[in-house]
Design a protein around this nucleic acid. Structure first.
Lengths: 235, 235
DNA sequence: TACATTACTGACCGCTCAGTCATTAATATG
DNA sequence: CATATTAATGACTGAGCGGTCAGTAATGTA
């Protein structure tokens, strides 16, 4: 039942007993970082607080000095990852002046640099896996992260449509279709499944971006009407 | 810690004690169906076998007549979902004769009908969440499901490229970019997060398909070289 | 009706782990 | 150095759950 866990401390400093130090202000972020890594790796329910504490270099008792419960720790992990994500998103979106296509590229690759390639990308997997067990957290994340990301992307598309750079299209579903490969990339890299690794994330994003630009531009090469089997929103 | 679980039996037949029946051959599939629903809903580690058994209308002891352990039950759930998925995929791909675009549409919407809208879609989430804890199962799933799906899609693209219907492009990454929205839709619907629900799955798939066809066709409307901020594979 | 077979049950066991708390040691202060 | 403060510890507890098994009841056979 219990997998073998490959107990790898981040800093086993060759000595026998690392002496107890008092570092009140550094503990919380160290604990949430350790928790993020383990939650993403093993899942929330399967992660032991003893392991989280050990990875952060403290005892379980210490963990309880800073967080009231396992659930509180979970919320803190999500919240901390989220704040960073929001900050990065703010930075990238603030008064960008180029073309809509440039802005789109900036958003996609900026997401990769600021979030996708960092350990924070694991938050997406965590939310996906645990949203049913923590509906309030999922709700909060949805309102404050997903919706904000959506708004950024939607504004970029709207701008392109308004300027004639992009064709008219269903903005809401386009936003979701465009974000999906990013989120799946994040989940994939946190899960070592779906095997996204066989192509580099950069090539993957580049292909996504190229398909997108051609798909968004005004030319047509297909009768836009669906050929059957489609029920909603098409007619 | 324990969420309130909303204990909803599928068939509480108004009577007090549903009498014990012997239905040896029906049990396994009923148990895996119950397990799939609960695993997807609460996660593998957080699901109690008592609940799985209760949902299937039997006692926990009965569950152990058919499965050796919780892990064996998990594997059976994945395997069962997978077999159906493979069968459906076989059916859809067998000697299709239309254009590459039609085949592509057939694959996308066929996936939705046969897998995406069924409870089996939850297997994707399950694999994503638990792959680290069950590497062999993830490996098996990857080889037998993901790779097969990839091959189907890749063949369709290849066919379009060969006939001149589609432009030349990086097939491997394109396959992943195209599958990503499908997988994320499945995960999303199993998680009630990312809020994909705000647009209908049909509209979402339709937008995906339209963006795709335009993106794949031979016209160009953008200098395909990246404009900066790209590190790998572009220069 | 008597007996054999077996699908099914549910009380039980032992382990794991979230959460507690009396104790210990590091720092601050004079 | 003496004393106070508090960060940090780790042994402990109690509940929950995976897994077991002696017993029960449904079915088959005569």
């Amino acid at each position: 039942m219990r997998p073998d866990a490959t107990r790898s401390e981040s800093n086993p400093p060759a000595d026998s007993l690392p002496p107890r130090r008092r570092r009140k202000d550094a503990r919380p972020s160290e604990l949430t970082a350790a928790a993020l890594a383990l939650f993403v790796d093993k899942g929330f329910a399967a992660t032991r607080l003893d392991d989280v504490a050990a990875r952060a270099g403290v005892s379980k008792g210490t963990l309880y000095l800073y967080f009231d419960s396992k659930e509180a720790l979970f919320k803190a992990v999500i919240e901390e990852g989220m704040v960073a994500a929001l900050t990065a998103a703010e930075q990238r979106s603030s008064d960008f002046q180029g073309s809509a296509a440039d802005l789109l590229q900036q958003l996609l690759f900026g997401w990769w640099e600021q979030i996708g390639k960092t350990p924070m990308a694991g938050v997406s997997k965590l939310i996906a896996c645990e949203s049913k067990n923590f509906p309030e957290v999922a709700q909060y994340y949805h309102e404050r992260v997903i919706n904000r990301g959506r708004a950024l992307l939607r504004a970029a598309l709207q701008r392109g449509v308004a300027s004639g750079e992009f064709r008219a299209l269903d903005l809401d579903s386009a936003v979701e279709v465009i974000m999906a490969p990013l989120l799946l990339l994040a989940i994939s890299r946190s899960s070592r499944c779906f095997g996204e690794q066989q192509t580099s994330p950069e090539a993957y994003l580049q292909t996504h971006f190229e398909l997108l630009l051609r798909g968004l531009c005004g030319t047509e090469c297909v009768p836009a009407a669906p050929r059957g089997a489609v029920t909603g929103s098409g007619a």
